[in-house]
């Protein structure tokens, strides 16, 4: 339909501004039958990158959060510094430093899994995303721990549990339950952010779009398609997380 509209309209000055960019070119998905595999493989790659990097980030993030809440000034300073650095520099820069710096020293042999994931790129990618994500997740955990009523720790300590036992057995289980929605949101963020891994040749969604665009000379539609795919994943996911959050808030009662 767009095609017909574009052709039947008389060319005006503003149309010449967009020459070669008829609305149809946004939705020219003629490349799909031939290049479908680029997109679904890209999707699998993207999802693996984002889910795994957040999972890998959980333990370091927990340690960072505990460090931030530690009484020791040194530990507080070191963990605070880490978080500040990773939150205040671009992810792309971090990715390059970790890929060429850290993994310039540690060589990972080229080996392909699932037929399209080269671990010599994938593992550095996960590491970079996880190191970045741990700084954000640490702040999520810290807020979650602080949100647990101080009376819980006091009750645990008054029963003779040590500080660490009180944290592990009483505070953390409640904190983690409270931060699960925020953690899921971090995965949603990573689904988007992981697109920068394209620049290092990781064959995720964005890389698929760029490659298809380059081979077919269809320059816009592949990107539109991946935008649709990103949206179709993240929007429902965010809505579902919101719903869970609302239900959790309603379930909260003082005990």
């Amino acid at each position: 339909m767009y095609l017909i509209l574009a052709q039947s309209a008389k060319t005006t000055w503003w149309q010449s501004l967009f020459s070669g960019m008829s609305p149809a070119s946004f939705f020219n998905f003629s490349f799909l039958p031939k290049y479908l595999s680029f997109f679904w493989q890209g999707l699998v790659y993207t999802l693996l990158l984002s889910v795994l990097s957040v999972l890998v980030a959980v333990i370091p993030a927990l340690l960072l959060a505990l460090g931030r809440l530690s009484k020791s000034k040194a530990i507080k300073g070191i963990t605070g510094g880490y978080i500040a650095v990773f939150r205040s520099t671009p992810l792309l820069v971090q990715l390059y430093i970790i890929y060429f710096g850290l993994f310039g020293l540690i060589k990972i042999p080229s080996h392909t899994i699932l037929g399209f994931i080269d671990i010599s790129r994938f593992i550095p990618g996960i590491c970079a995303l996880a190191l970045n994500s741990s700084a954000y997740v640490a702040e999520i955990f810290r807020a979650g721990i602080l949100a647990v009523d101080a009376g819980q720790t006091e009750a645990a300590r008054s029963l003779g549990l040590s500080g660490w036992q009180a944290m592990k057995l009483v505070v953390l289980p409640q904190a983690i339950k409270n931060v699960l929605p925020a953690l899921a949101n971090e995965v949603v963020t990573m689904v988007k952010e992981s697109s920068i891994c394209m620049t290092l040749g990781m064959m995720e969604l964005m890389w698929g779009a760029k490659t298809v665009a380059g081979t077919t000379y269809i320059t816009i539609a592949p990107y539109v398609l991946v935008a649709i795919i990103y949206f179709a994943i993240n929007f429902p996911a965010s809505k579902a997380i919101e719903a869970v959050e609302r239900r959790m808030r309603r379930g909260d009662r003082k005990v």
Partner: peptide, 8 residues
Amino acid sequence: FQHFNLFP
């Protein structure tokens, strides 16, 4: 405690 502080 006044507010019980049971582990929920």
